[in-house]
Design a protein around this nucleic acid. Sequence first.
DNA 1: CCTACCGATCGGTAGG
DNA 2: CCTACCGATCGGTAGG
Lengths: 206, 206
Amino acid sequence: MTEATPPRPQTRIQRRNTEAILEAALEVFSAQGFRGATLDQIAQAAGLSKPNLLYYFPSKEAIHVALLEGLMDIWLAPLRAMDPAGEPKAEIMGYMRRKLEMSREMPRESRLFANEVLQGAPRFIEGIEGDLKTLVDDKAAVIGAWAAAGKIAPVDPYHLIFSIWALTQHYADFDVQVRAVLGPGRAPFAEAERFLETLFERLLAP
Amino acid sequence: MTEATPPRPQTRIQRRNTEAILEAALEVFSAQGFRGATLDQIAQAAGLSKPNLLYYFPSKEAIHVALLEGLMDIWLAPLRAMDPAGEPKAEIMGYMRRKLEMSREMPRESRLFANEVLQGAPRFIEGIEGDLKTLVDDKAAVIGAWAAAGKIAPVDPYHLIFSIWALTQHYADFDVQVRAVLGPGRAPFAEAERFLETLFERLLAP
DNA sequence: CCTACCGATCGGTAGG
DNA sequence: CCTACCGATCGGTAGG
């Protein structure tokens, strides 16, 4: 866990291979989970030999940690963009919409984090207790102030954030189940957007 | 996949061992996922040797399939109990409460299904397309009729059911993250109950 | 950056 | 000749 990032300085080839490895790792880890994934699968998807893979990252765990850390900023961007100076309900609705958009556009990333947290976040707990908790505490205070000022309904800010996570990530993480239950000819994400807009409009109305 | 259940008739010892295996498999599969779990872990948790384990079930996959099938009825009971003749809002709120209670009392079962669906439900897709879809179609029709009659707000019944799944299972599946973000001295499930009661009251009000 | 490997552990099965 | 097992090991594959 000490050396999660590849050696520097990097040549163009090294940068390209590092990118290919992380892309391949995202594909494989998100579909199989950490233990289910193999270095051979990742190496093949990246178009590298396994020994070459292990030249760039010292271990399977190092790839996984680098992947999670590299995605953390992107993953938290929608919440980070919630503006304390903005119009309260519009800011929360905007956050929900960005998060749902993320589930649609980045389902592999969603499943990667889901797999990790579901199994107790053994390689990620410091990220949750660090960046994530700090950001959520910050934004929960903002939402709490909006509620106290009567701009939105008086709801628990933490559970409001949890509800946005749960409702939007569900469509990425349980995509197979959602599509199987809805049957063919439906558009889960478009339907979800309308449903969630109604849900949060009604929940937040002061 | 032909012989997922142990031989019959069973002695008392056989019934006890079969129960111990399924309990151990729930513990291990829910925490590690299918590929992450090993027969050795399951055997040890069940207090049996691995060869004895494989006397009762022919393979790792057979244990997993038997476990999912055996839990299906319990898992669907809360939705099944929703009464078409009952008071609409009370029936939906009751379903939500039973589902949240299930997340609190049976988090391992929740994580078992979550692990499976998250990875594309390779050993479970027929259960989703069969029993689950049939039941959801049935109950969605009931909810749709309630909405059409103006007893509840006009919401998409399928996405209403998805929202109950997402919001209640989140507290079991992402328990580690919820607790890490909330910090010590909080009661996630008690808080969730109050929050979700508010949320669905507001969503469903005609 | 490849060929050739290792200690260990995987799911599953042998004889008794 | 059945049941309910055990100690030891199978062929292959894991991470490294």
